[in-house]
């Protein structure tokens, strides 16, 4: 699904990513862990082409969607407008089809009642769901999530785990998550890499690894 070879990224003469090579399987949930500044977000941004890389190749089969750490919802638009604006520009069928699709997605994510609200009136967890819904409107094959649990409480984090897992299973979407929250990553991911100093320090399957959180902490 995603073939990454020898990716290097340099910022101000500092190598943020050093020859990262990976293959990510279709329909998997892939976790990228690591301390702040290790290059997790940069790596995701390179996949999404928000960042140019200096060396290497990324072969991506399918469309990508991106969920930002701070959601980046458009504050002057309602939830519905946030969801349908981009698709309705491409969809010749117009806004009606998009609206129907948006309502279905919001229903599935349990925030249909917020459809006409502005982002400023939503809680962190609700914004998270709207951001997820907006990404899903583009029908992505790969969903890239940058720190999806930052600033969320424990129960909302559990909701995020449930939501992302159900999106992964029901829609067959490959999910790549960058997070420093090891507990969250081990609960949700099929495979986790830990980046340190721009390199892959560990590559594990949390389902087969004994005490994955403790194991990853050793390399932090």
């Amino acid at each position: 699904m995603l073939k990454i070879r020898d990716i290097c990224k340099v910022f101000n003469h500092i190598k943020i990513l050093k020859n990262i090579s990976l293959d990510i399987k279709k329909s998997s949930i892939f976790g990228i862990a690591g301390p702040s500044g290790c290059g997790k977000s940069t790596f995701l941004r390179c996949i999404q082409k928000l960042e140019c890389f200096d060396q290497g190749t990324i072969e991506c089969k399918g469309r990508t969607g991106f969920m930002f750490q701070d959601f980046q919802l458009f504050p002057h638009m309602t939830v519905l407008q946030n969801l349908i604006y981009a698709p309705s520009l491409k969809n010749k069928g117009g806004k009606t089809d998009c609206k129907k699709q948006a309502e279905d997605i919001l229903n599935n994510l349990g925030i249909a009642s917020k459809i006409n609200e502005y982002p400023s009136s939503l809680s962190g967890g609700q914004k998270q769901r709207v951001a997820l819904a907006r990404s899903l409107m583009a029908k992505p094959d790969i969903l890239l999530c940058d720190e999806p649990t930052s600033g969320l409480d424990v129960s909302t984090i559990m909701d995020v785990i449930f939501l992302l897992k159900s999106v992964n299973k029901q829609l067959n979407i490959t999910i790549i998550i960058a997070s420093h929250d090891l507990d969250f990553l081990t609960k949700i991911s099929d495979r986790i890499i830990l980046l340190k100093g721009g390199e892959i320090a560990v590559d594990i399957n949390p389902l087969t690894c004994d005490m994955p959180v403790d194991f990853l902490k050793k390399y932090y």
Binding site: Q48, L50, G65, F66, F68, D70, Q72, L73, F74, P75, H76, Y85, A86, L89, K90, R134, A138
Partner: peptide, 27 residues
């Protein structure tokens, strides 16, 4: 404006004209 607003528009494949007209300039 946060740089992320431009990036969100880019990620959603919103053409530049519409990005300026409907996303950036109203804010």
């Amino acid at each position: 404006l946060p740089k992320g607003q431009f990036e969100a528009a880019q990620t959603l494949e919103i053409p530049r004209f519409y990005m300026w007209k409907d996303i950036i300039l109203p804010q």
